[in-house]
Amino acid sequence: MLIVTCPWCGPREQTEFSCGGEAHIARPPDPGALTDEQWGDYLFMRKNPRGRHLEQWVHTYGCRRWFNVERDTVTYRITAVYKAGEEPPGGGA
């Protein structure tokens, strides 16, 4: 069981949260201007790294707010939590 520290509610058990996958994927401002390859890349392609991962979580059974988590995908250890819109502490957004 992971303990996830919600930036608003503090440390809570993982089952209160939902994981929303890779963070910092910005919706293209003008989708109509993209090629099919660029649009497909935005929709489907993911970094899926082995190691440090920046991802979105939502406190589903708590404050219901989204935030970002830096987590290692091998050890599952959470190394940082930061609010939506903020830069990751280690950079690399």
Binding site: M1, Q14, T75, Y76
Partner: peptide, 13 residues
């Protein structure tokens, strides 16, 4: 598990 992971183990829940 909903999160991505390479650890060959998952959550007890």
């Amino acid at each position: 598990d909903a999160y991505t992971g390479y650890g060959q183990r998952g959550s007890f829940s």
